[in-house]
Computed example of a mutant assay.
Amino acid sequence: MKINQNTVLQGKRVTLVPYTSAHVPRYHEWMRSEELQRLTASEPLTLEQEYEMQRSWREDADKCTFIVLDTERWSGQACADEDCMVGDVNLFLTDLEDPTLGEIEIMIAEPSYRGRGFGKEATLMMMSYGVTNLGITKFEAKIGQENEASICMFRKLHFKEVAVNSVFQEVTLRLDVSDQEKRWLLEQTNHVKEKSYTELKLPAVVLET
């Protein structure tokens, strides 16, 4: 989605940056994992297919994607994006009859970052971005029944289970963003700073002039 191609959202634990070609090799490495393929219901792609997917997601109007970085490692440009990557978060606007409905996905691919609040903060940041920038008022999350940690996290974010698909062994959770929920969401993310990705990636000498 072009709307976020120059957007950086910096939180306490995580920083969200647009998905670029520089991130593809690391992402491709993650998705060779059978565990991640199972948890995300994904099929393995070749590296070239992964590059094509990245280009498509950047252009498609119904997909908003951010790469999740470790803020502590990344801040101050201590390391390149690809060396600070921990996962990704996505919003899919796939209901043509209801553009206010967004399907949200979160993946913390690096095992050492799971269970530490990175997924929760990234999800809250993406939800806040969806509400304030994309006009989203309803969120859905479709999660494999075996992924208890993810189901538990979404329930803590006020999502309610609305359906179970026994064929795909998938649970659908939903959150309708009332005025009260919106206030809560914005309070949870009032620390987030929005920055320009282009400016952050400029060489230091350019920033000084």
Rank of each mutant, 00 (worst) to 15 (best):
F168L: 03
L185M: 06
A141C: 04
M85T: 14
R114A: 10
Q180Y: 03
T123I: 02
F118V: 03
V86P: 02
V131H: 12
F118Y: 15
E199I: 12
V177K: 05
L93K: 13
L200N: 10
T123Q: 12
E72S: 04
T189D: 00
A122S: 12
V162Y: 01
H191C: 06
F139R: 06
E72A: 10
L134D: 07
V192S: 07
L200F: 01
D98P: 02
T172R: 12
R155A: 08
L202T: 08
S196Q: 03
I136L: 14
T198N: 05
V89I: 13
G102H: 05
L134W: 03
A163H: 15
F168A: 13
K120P: 01
G144S: 02
V162I: 15
D95Y: 12
T198K: 04
N90Y: 04
S196C: 11
R73Q: 15
F118E: 07
L186K: 12
I143W: 01
Q169T: 00
V206H: 08
V164F: 15
E97D: 14
K201T: 13
K156S: 10
R174F: 00
L173E: 10
M153K: 09
T172L: 11
E199Y: 11
K160V: 15
D81I: 00
P99A: 12
F139S: 04
I151D: 01
V89W: 14
Q180N: 05
E199F: 03
D81A: 09
M125Y: 12
V162C: 13
I104W: 11
